[in-house]
Simulated assay, not measured.
Amino acid sequence: MHPPRNLLPFLVTLAAVGLLSLMDAVMKLAALAVGTYVTLVVRSGFALAMAGPLYLATRRGWPARPVMRLHIVRGVVIAGMSFTFFWGITRLPLAEAIALSFTSPLVALYLSAVLLGETIARSAIAASLLGLAGVATIAWGRIEAPAADGGAALGIAAVLTSSLLYAWNLVLQRQQAQFAKPAEVATFQTAVSGLVYLLFAPWFFALPGSASLPWIFAAAAMSVGGAMALAWAYARAEAQALIPLEYSGFLWAMLFGWLFFREPVSAPTLVGAGLIVAGCWIAAPRKPPEMTAA
């Protein structure tokens, strides 16, 4: 039995967030082994090799100038967002880093109103407030823990910087999804961000060891799959309705942080997660979302 059509964008978004959370854990493994910059350069190459042929086989011409501009802007934003995030998670527990990144969906809810003209529903506001309360609870638990070292402080700063860029990325993603198919979105975001990374190759690139390549390849596959799934979902439902589902990434981060790194989960973390899940439930549609693409 298939789920109702109006729920499909939400189910796809939840699955994509889980896949990308697993990718975060795999990227952390690779970044700890060979460095964040090298990992991102190699992942971009793998991802482009996966998404590019699919796009070339299905494209109906070169993107129009306004669409190309969206591709370029989002690719540059993703380059900065990805580097600061993955550099930050090498210095923080995965779940705590994801918690800090939840400032971006909160900002993006209101950016979608300013830049896209979407109306902010009361349920979306309530969801964002519950999510914020969950993040504040987790942050309080971190403050009460033993003092963080300088590396942790830099990691927090990096993840917060990434979260601001991610808020912009979420709104660009909604705009992009109105004009481009998932394969095109995945191809151009990968190509543009990869070109940005290559600008720094003369100073920072070194060939990674062969042991890390399978992990980076797996991360690339998850990145492409997650990007295409999100592009499909954002073309079929409003950004303000899908963005609160990003909070479910915290639950995935708790799971993968424990499985991959044996990172413990504190009581404030569990309370915060409960508030975040409640916010996601409130954000779920009570009527069919706007269908913007077939």
Score class of each variant (00 low, 15 high):
104 S>Y: 12
86 F>P: 00
117 G>Q: 12
13 T>N: 13
9 P>W: 14
164 L>M: 10
84 T>Y: 01
162 S>I: 03
82 S>K: 06
250 F>C: 00
68 M>D: 08
226 G>Q: 08
99 A>W: 02
129 L>A: 10
92 L>Y: 00
27 M>P: 07
89 I>Y: 09
193 S>H: 14
154 L>V: 05
30 A>L: 13
57 A>P: 01
260 F>Y: 07
56 L>Y: 02
76 V>K: 01
239 A>V: 03
195 L>M: 10
91 R>L: 09
21 S>V: 00
185 V>C: 04
131 G>W: 04
290 E>S: 15
221 A>P: 10
41 V>D: 05
74 R>E: 10
262 R>S: 14
26 V>Y: 05
149 D>K: 07
181 K>H: 01
41 V>C: 10
275 L>S: 00
103 T>H: 08
292 T>G: 15
218 A>D: 05
113 A>G: 01
139 A>V: 15
238 E>P: 01
71 H>N: 09
229 A>Q: 03
39 T>Q: 04
276 I>H: 02
160 L>V: 10
22 L>C: 10
169 N>P: 08
11 L>M: 05
259 L>Q: 12
88 G>W: 14
37 Y>F: 15
158 A>D: 12
88 G>T: 03
96 E>V: 11
167 A>W: 04
60 R>Q: 15
213 L>I: 13
171 V>D: 06
277 V>R: 12
235 A>C: 03
97 A>L: 06
79 A>H: 06
182 P>E: 09
73 V>S: 10
101 S>P: 03
49 A>T: 03
111 L>F: 12
257 G>L: 09
30 A>T: 02
98 I>F: 09
232 W>F: 12
280 C>M: 15
211 A>D: 02
52 G>I: 10
72 I>K: 08
245 L>G: 07
75 G>M: 11
37 Y>Q: 12
43 R>F: 01
146 P>W: 14
114 V>K: 07
127 A>R: 13
275 L>K: 10
20 L>N: 10
180 A>M: 11
194 G>V: 06
71 H>W: 06
152 A>D: 01
278 A>C: 02
192 V>H: 09
206 A>V: 03
105 P>K: 08
183 A>W: 15
222 M>I: 08
156 I>H: 01
53 P>D: 05
289 P>F: 03
86 F>H: 13
91 R>V: 00
250 F>G: 03
2 H>D: 08
52 G>E: 02
274 G>S: 05
255 L>R: 05
79 A>E: 06
12 V>G: 10
114 V>M: 00
166 Y>A: 13
174 R>Y: 08
185 V>F: 11
289 P>C: 13
249 G>L: 09
289 P>A: 03
94 L>V: 14
271 V>G: 11
10 F>R: 12
87 W>V: 05
233 A>Q: 06
106 L>D: 05
294 A>E: 15
90 T>G: 14
291 M>G: 08
18 G>M: 14
88 G>R: 02
209 G>S: 15
